[in-house]
Every structure is written in C-alpha cells, then in structure tokens.
C-alpha cells in the first residue's frame, strides 16, 4: 500500500514537471495577454503553485517594460541623403523602362522570384560592376523592353534562358567573376564580353556570358550537354540544321551544340549572329 502511494506521488511529480516545462513556452503569451481563455486558466492554476514560473512571469514583465523604453535611433542626415539619391537614381532608371509598370513585369516577377534572390544589388559589387550595370541600361534598346509576356517554348532550358534574359534586362547584372582569361564559348568579330557568372539552366548549373554587340546586349549560356540534348525537338533541329531556334516577339534564342556542352544564345533577333559567323572556342568546359 505504501509503495503504491509513493508511486502515485512520483507520477504526480513527473506530470507536474512536464506541465511546468510545457507551460514555460506559454508564459510570454500570458504576460502579453495573447492566450485564449482556456490556456490562461491552465497557466493561472499552475502559477498558483509554482514560484519559479511566477518569478519568470515577473521577470518577463519587467524586461518587456524596460525594452519598450529603449531610446530610438534616427537615420543620420547624410545617410538619409544617400538613400534619397539612391532611390531617385533607381526610380529614374526604371523611368526609362516603360515596361516596369506593365503586366509583363508582374508575370516575370513571379517566374524569376528565385533568380532575384541572387545578389543583384550594386551594393555588393565593386565599382566596375556598377559601371557595367549602367552600361547595360544604356545599351539595351528600348525595343527589348516592350516585351509582352514570357513566351513558352515548352522546353525548360529555352524558357529558362529567355526568362533570365528578360529579367536581367530589367535589373542589375549579377556580380561578374570573369577575368582576362575568360574565353567566350562562341565568338564573332564584334562580340565584347561584359560579364560572366554562374547560374542554373534546366535544373543544372550553367555559365552566362553577357556580351555587347554594337549597341545590343546578348547572353550566351554554356550548359550541360545532357540538358542540351534532352528535348526531342532540339535534337531533331540540331541534326537537320545544326541549330535550334526559338522566336518570341523580337527576342530570339538559338541553341548550338559544342564539344561536350551546349550553347544557348539569346538576344534581340537582329543582333543574333548568323551561325556561319560564330567561331567556337575550344575553351575549357566549366559548367
């Protein structure tokens, strides 16, 4: 009999301890009046018999009260001016891009949400990258901004590069990691490498090369060979004509095979070089 009582006592103790720990997570809510009636009743019943929890509640109240009275901070005047200037510049930049307002942007906004998690901001970039960003804004013809909707080729890699091209013509370029030694996968006489960075196409890692051609900007994507040949339409087109083409309004994507890799070039249709003009570089495959 005595043993049984001890066991019951022990059980009660374990139950009480468990409740004591569980309720600790509700104490903030009790202090802030965020508990529903039932929760509040349970907490109050426990508090009546638990000094550590009562102390905790009182410490939380004191802490909340004290923290609420912490002095606030204001943005220093010069910092405010820098911010104003930045926002003016940003606003004016988009000012030259009527499509900022258009429903196109809202569509692309969703598609490229993940892309835009990339460090696109000029604040993480060095000075020359900021210069490049400005260069892009100047060189991209207004025509490319009157895009309508992301067209779908129903080929993931093509849709990917199209979306990236359209998105990046509206934003800053990512920070480039190209060096003097970076070789363009496909070269032609008036191609000038602006920047290069890593990306994802068709679910595989890829490399982008931003190129200026006259006053136009094009992107070359060097992609994984497996991704490149995944689609039957692309395979057939390449077998027949040596390349695959996709048109979307005044934007064009061409897909040409390389040794152990695939190449996608995207840009304004009239700026895409003819396939005979393209000189493939033997360069290393680093996708």
């Amino acid at each position: 009999m005595k043993n049984q009582t001890a066991e019951t006592d022990n059980n009660q103790q374990v139950k009480w301890q468990t409740l004591h720990y569980q309720l600790q997570d509700l104490l903030a809510g009790y202090v802030d009046g965020e508990l529903d009636k039932q929760q509040a009743a349970i907490v109050e019943a426990h508090l009546a018999g638990c000094k550590p929890c009562r102390d905790d509640v009182q410490r939380q109240q004191a802490l909340a009260f004290r923290l609420n009275r912490l002095g606030s901070q204001t943005v220093p005047e010069q910092m405010n001016q820098r911010l104003d200037q930045l926002m003016d510049e940003t606003g004016n930049k988009h000012h030259q891009q009527p499509s900022w307002q258009s429903y196109f942007y809202q569509g692309i906004n969703r598609i490229t949400k993940n892309l835009r998690q990339l460090p696109l901001s000029p604040f993480y970039a060095s000075g020359w990258v900021i210069a490049l960003v400005l260069a892009i804004v100047l060189f991209l013809p207004v025509k490319t901004h009157t895009l309508v909707k992301t067209g779908s080729s129903h080929i993931p890699m093509i849709d990917d590069v199209l979306a990236q091209y359209q998105q990046l013509s509206h934003a800053s370029l990512p920070v480039s990691d190209h060096t003097e030694k970076t070789v363009l996968p496909a070269n032609w006489p008036d191609a000038h490498l602006l920047a290069s960075w890593a990306t994802t196409v068709g679910g595989a890692s890829a490399r982008v090369f931003a190129i200026r051609r006259g006053d136009q900007v094009l992107f070359q994507f060097r992609i994984n060979e497996a991704v490149f040949f995944r689609n039957a339409t692309v395979r057939q087109a390449v077998a027949r004509r040596g390349q695959y083409q996709f048109h979307h309004h005044n934007i064009m994507v061409i897909a040409v095979p390389e040794k152990h890799a695939g190449l996608l070039i995207v840009g304004p249709t009239h700026a895409i070089p003819a396939i005979q003009q393209i000189k493939h570089q033997p360069g290393q495959v680093d996708v």
């Binding site: 600790q24 509700l26 903030a28 809510g29 905790d56 410490r59 939380q60 802490l63």
Partner: peptide
C-alpha cells in the same frame, strides 16, 4: 506559426534575463 512566436519569445526573454 503564432505559437512559435510565443515559445521563442518565452525562451528568448528567459535567456536574456
């Protein structure tokens, strides 16, 4: 979830104290 806000706040205040 709001419940997580409550438990994190309870623990955060306890830790700070």
């Amino acid at each position: 979830p709001p419940g997580t806000v409550m438990s994190r706040l309870s623990r955060g205040r306890r830790l700070l104290a």
